[in-house]
């Protein structure tokens, strides 16, 4: 069996409601306060800087954010 597909709450952020336990760690770890809960659903305010801290600290493989593309010089 594979990981749940989840839903895109932002073009960058995938959230899997099946795995989420609503522990609020991602919301508090986010440096730009991008994430919040609205009626038990996670919403993004569109300020994501792709630091991936929410993905790193999430204990339940719930959030996924792609890494930032390196600047081509």
């Amino acid at each position: 069996m594979h990981q749940a597909i989840g839903k895109k709450i932002d073009p960058l952020i995938t959230w899997r409601p099946e795995y989420c336990k609503r522990c609020f760690t991602c919301i508090n770890i986010c440096p730009v306060k991008n994430l919040m809960f609205q009626d038990d659903e996670m919403v993004s305010l569109g300020k994501c800087i792709q630091c991936q801290l929410c993905e790193k600290y999430c204990p339940d493989f719930t959030i996924e954010v792609p890494p930032r593309k390196e600047d081509k010089k």
Partner: peptide
């Protein structure tokens, strides 16, 4: 999944 560990 999900694991049975407490939230947080």
């Amino acid at each position: 999944m999900p694991t049975n560990w407490c939230p947080g």
